[in-house]
Amino acid sequence: MRPLQFLPAILVFALACNDTAVKPSKIFGQSDQQTADARTETKGTDELSANAEGQEGVLPPANISGSYLIDCTIFDSQKSQTSPAQVNFACGVSRKSGGAVASDGQWKGTILNPTADETLQTRDAKTGLFLLTTTKPEQLVTAMNKVSLSFDGTIEGQKVSLTETGQRTLSRDLAQVQSLIIRTSFTVQIVSGTRTGLVYSGTFQYDSSMLTGAAQETLEAQNLQFNYLTPQAQQFDSKGILNFVNGRFVSLVVAGGPATQRFGINTGFDRNQFGRPEEAFVPNGEQFFGYLATDGFVDGAGTLRYSFL
């Protein structure tokens, strides 16, 4: 299994904020004039009034949080068939106008409507370090879609609570700067015909960031290779089509080979051409590999199995 390294990407979360400024309550010992001064509001900006700023116990206007963004950087990631897909990312705070700012507080992370396959671990609540894990590598983008983060503490000396509701998603920002390439292998086991018992294998890959999670989707296969017979027989008629259901890979469809060595993976044959008992899975609608004899007649069939690399 080879890990896939993700290029660093700054992923910016939009932050919900309240347009209505919070009115500070009167502090014990203040005069009425001091309290009135402290209640001076600046709506629609993060500027604090001179009187309110620096007074212990006086809350800044709520809209100050609208001046900040949560920045997250993915610094390590891996996907494989036998181990969970993992994404490590660290978060901080910056101004909307640009530039990181000092912050001191606690970070929390959750997955909205999580499944049993998805977990988000807060590795360091003080520094905003998180680990997202899913046992289904093909569902990594979906899991990242549901990440929600919150920060509660002080920013530039002011108490602020920031919450990301999930309206902007980690995976969509990631897709703009870094493809999620998933490499897959397939194995053909011949069960009938002159090549019964032989096994052939191949590989392909696809960019999972191109998927939307719709009920039915297709992508072109990338770097499709098939170790079948001779190099001439390994040529394809097309790049190959990959079928997906709800974001999950389902099948490869491609045909190839010269006239005397034709083959098809889930295509190129009428399923009713396979009538032997050991070929019953083909007319029953399961995935299949079919091949022709040198005289152009149907020779036999094989089963098909996929695995993530």
Rank of each mutant, 00 (worst) to 15 (best):
T154Y: 07
Y306V: 00
T110C: 02
A214Y: 07
T135S: 11
R172H: 06
A9V: 08
F308P: 04
L4T: 12
T184N: 01
I265F: 03
T212F: 08
T42A: 13
S150N: 12
A62Y: 15
T42Y: 15
R262N: 03
W107A: 00
E278F: 00
N243F: 14
N266P: 06
V253Q: 14
P84F: 10
L180M: 09
S97M: 02
F308W: 04
Y68I: 04
T142M: 06
G296R: 06
D46A: 13
L170D: 01
P231C: 06
A301R: 01
G98R: 05
T133R: 14
R195K: 14
A38F: 05
E56P: 08
A293Y: 01
L198M: 13
G302Q: 00
V199P: 02
E47K: 14
P258D: 01
A301W: 00
A85Y: 02
T163A: 15
Q55W: 05
T135W: 03
G268A: 13
I190E: 02
G247L: 07
Q287M: 10
E41I: 08
D37K: 04
R2C: 10
F244T: 04
G105W: 01
N272V: 14
A36L: 08
Q5E: 10
F308V: 11
F244Q: 07
T212C: 06
R2G: 13
N246M: 11
S150P: 05
E138V: 07
S77A: 15
T260D: 10
G193C: 10
S238L: 06
T115D: 12
G66P: 10
S31G: 11
M144G: 04
G275V: 13
L219R: 09
A38D: 12
T165D: 07
K96L: 14
G153V: 06
S49A: 13
E41W: 03
T267E: 09
L129F: 07
N243D: 13
G99V: 05
S251M: 02
A38T: 02
T187N: 03
L48S: 12
V93E: 01
T133K: 15
G128T: 01
P84E: 05
A100F: 13
L112T: 13
V298P: 01
A100I: 09
Q261K: 15
S251Q: 07
L211S: 06
A21L: 04
N227F: 05
Q287E: 03
T82G: 12
A301M: 02
S49D: 06
T218A: 11
G99N: 02
